[in-house]
Design a binder for these strands. Structure first.
Lengths: 331, 331
DNA sequence: CTGAAAGCGCTTACAG
DNA sequence: CTGAAAGCGCTTACAG
């Protein structure tokens, strides 16, 4: 392994001079010497040892992405997109990405400290442990999709409530009057809750009720689907809390013999790449995942550059993407 | 920051004794002392500094996953699956995952050396640079889907040729006699080549030709699709080199007014999660991505434990998954 | 503009 | 079973 010392000996200077060249510390080494040393570094294939750097400078140039545990954390297209973009942005900044999935929030502190990570981005549900995580780790931390009331926490999220509103308004516009909400995860998730509330309140304001029996935490069983989509006052449209949910819901509705959108309409949330590819192409609420990833990374680096910066809470916009999974009942 | 020294002072022992407790070096510290020290470590919230460890022990417990550059490397569901599984397995071994996307293979050496990475797994097309990468980095390296002739390289791949055979045999069984191959990427990719050869040779052996005009490097334009699927001797079935390709191909065929599989059949390769969700559900050649990720990780750790181990080339099996995108023309 | 000294937090290698 | 010494490769802080 080639070290600073080797380069220094070869160039006949001290290690400090080489270190200054390697780190491009300006105007502290004469130009001629600088060029000569650069040549030797190139020729000998010197690569700085990041561990040694991290140890002495207390900066690792390492960013951790923290995901809640799953057998495969990137199974979800949303997570995969976020991690992929963040990884690219982090690398563009000259930093390196560590990828972690944690079963218990207490693992977080150990993982961040042991590598002396300079900053971390959290994907997913860490709301309740956020306070402890924040207290235990005095480095810049960016959460995503958090609804924690803590003001000193930096978060990048989207307008989930508005997403629910847009879905409701679109279905109302298309003449639907009896609808169903299909959630996922537990009701613990404030993200699900916000989308639901936006949906429900918009319906209520328009004089349309969303009865309890049409609200589900997961995809309803086929018998249930058959029951609510037929009978006296059938459900004509579903708002699924995520595109993945919508896709499986459509599968189940089709398996029940329903045609989408002729017999019942479905609107999703996320606008994943696959959502335009299924049959029928999914009408959905779009969130800009690249922008979310970019914003989260930018804010993180802003806090790394200036740790005194106040916490920010960014809420990104959402919009309706109309495709073919919602029928117009007005015509 | 709590260090070994702090624990040592608190316990009234030397740092070496604490180090031995932290690292569970067996039977070298009396039991009573060991318990007492463990208590202090717990109480003071000591976390070992991995950089210091890496520097002095020359082992980082870091594994790099190297992907060829893309704007979003995890945009491909295949990459996302692989990275997700590998990350989990690596973590189970007590190691940490670094995620890199590289534009140029020369970046690889710098990235691996600077963090003193203990091993690396490569996803994607590194065949031509493999020799240089291998020579520059004397740590365990596992490649995937490589067709490099280098014998000293460890690789985990699948039987792409057999996949092509299975596709051909299935279409022949279903009575198709005029087929098309739709590739992706360049023909440089030996993976594409192998799938193509398996397909073509099986057709030829059965007395069915695969004329040049029905072989494509990307998804054909709609005019082309219309032309080859109509006329005197129409193409009745397509073999797409990957499910993603198949999905877009189906989109295009539908946009041309063709019904799948009534007017033309499509068979894919990979069996992604989405492939069963599209309409019609895709008949495809399945590869076991979890097994591939697991095998690659296991072999890597075997080589880390015993660097003298000879290189291995593992070829995993593939199989046909029959769904609804291929019509039976015999009935 | 340049360098000698000290130290980051740990482990290796040796001594007892 | 325990510890003092040296060193991993770098940077910080200071001196000139």
């Amino acid at each position: 392994m080639v070290t600073l010392k080797d380069i220094a000996r070869e160039a006949g200077v001290s290690v400090m001079t080489v270190s200054r060249v390697v780190n491009d510390i300006p105007a502290k080494v004469s130009c001629a010497k600088r060029m000569e040393i650069k040549g030797i570094i190139e020729r000998m294939g010197y690569v700085p040892n990041s561990s040694a750097r991290s140890l002495s400078s207390r900066c690792s140039r390492l960013i951790a992405i923290i995901l809640p545990y799953a057998e495969n954390v990137l199974d979800s297209p949303y997570n995969a997109q976020m991690v992929g973009y963040i990884c690219g942005f982090v690398q563009d900044m000259g930093y390196t990405t560590l990828l972690y999935n944690v079963r218990d929030y207490r693992e977080v502190t150990v993982k961040l400290r042991t590598w002396n990570v300079d900053g971390a981005i959290f994907l997913g549900l860490f709301d309740s442990q956020m306070k402890s995580i924040k207290e235990d780790n005095r480095i810049p931390l960016v959460f995503t999709d958090s609804y924690s009331p803590l003001r000193q926490v930096t978060n990048v999220g989207i307008d989930d409530f508005k997403g629910g509103e847009l879905a409701a308004r679109h279905l109302l516009d298309k003449g639907h009057r009896n609808m169903s909400f299909v959630g996922e995860f537990s009701w613990e998730s404030p993200v699900v809750r916000a989308r639901f509330e936006g949906f429900k309140q918009t319906l209520l304001a328009a004089g349309t009720d969303l009865p309890e029996r049409n609200v589900f935490t997961g995809i309803p069983a086929r018998d249930t689907l058959k029951a609510i989509c037929a009978g006296g006052k059938p459900v004509t449209a579903f708002f699924a809390v995520a595109d993945i949910t919508a896709i499986y819901l459509i599968q189940n509705l089709m398996a029940c013999g329903f045609s989408i959108p002729r017999d019942c309409s479905v609107i999703g949330f996320d606008n994943l790449a696959v959502s335009g590819l299924i049959e029928p192409p999914l009408t959905t609420i779009e969130q800009d995942i690249e922008k979310k990833a970019r914003t989260a990374t930018e804010i993180l680096f802003r806090h790394i550059a200036d740790p005194a910066r106040p916490a920010e809470n960014v809420v990104l916009d959402v919009c309706l993407v109309e495709r073919e999974s919602v029928a117009d009942r007005n015509i």
